[in-house]
Amino acid sequence: MIIAERKDLGLISKMLEGRSKVLVAGCRSCVAICHAGGEKEVAATAEALRLRAAAEGRHIDVTEMTLERQCEKEWVQEMGPHLQDREIVLSLACGVGAQVVQEMYPATLVVPGLNTSNMGAPEEQGIYLEKCAGCGDCVLHLTGGICPLARCSKSMLNGPCGGSQNGKCEVNPDTACAWDLIFHSLQRLGRLDLLEENIPPKNWLPSRSGGPRRIVRPPVVQGEEEKRSREGSP
């Protein structure tokens, strides 16, 4: 899932400056699970904005809504009626959601209420760990199910650097050394032989280095006719 954190309220207020009719829009997907932009966080952020405005003697009219998914047009359509009198949308979705909303409602300014951080998983309640770098060419079969690109501070592909000690990364004592994890995982799996092979320089074309990525899955791409008939149906 996508892990995000809410921006500082002061920064959010600054982005909203001069606008008094605000829609705070959340998302029930990833950002709800990581407690950054779900229904509860939307309510808390909206209330904080009201209190802040009241304390500063400003008038603000904050409405709230939380979509099932802010990254899919089908769900974002539901926002239309709620935007009628709104001057600005504070999106508490990830950067993807905020962009889809802006794309669908180009006449209304959409500002980001979250900092989208990474693709990760909850480690335990309230603690989230980055797991995937979205490189477009997965190597987990070679690394015991632990991604060195996302989880090694130097994204090394051929083993740990000299800063790995007692299972920790030298960059941060709270960070596990990915290569220590990989070594022990492959040891348990009886596949330490994989660590003897040199992995050649990575092809970064499937990654961001090939420019923004667009994936086309031909069997599910709709033809023009199909699109028209869909749009026509209720």
């Binding site: 051929n158 083993g159 740990p160 800063g163 000690q165 022990h184 330490l192 660590l195 003897e196």
Partner: peptide, 18 residues
């Protein structure tokens, strides 16, 4: 470079071999 004092120690020589 090689660091015989970093961990995991059991992998350090294999890494040198690489």
């Amino acid at each position: 470079a090689a660091n015989p004092f970093a961990d995991p120690f059991e992998y350090r020589v294999a890494r040198l071999a690489k």
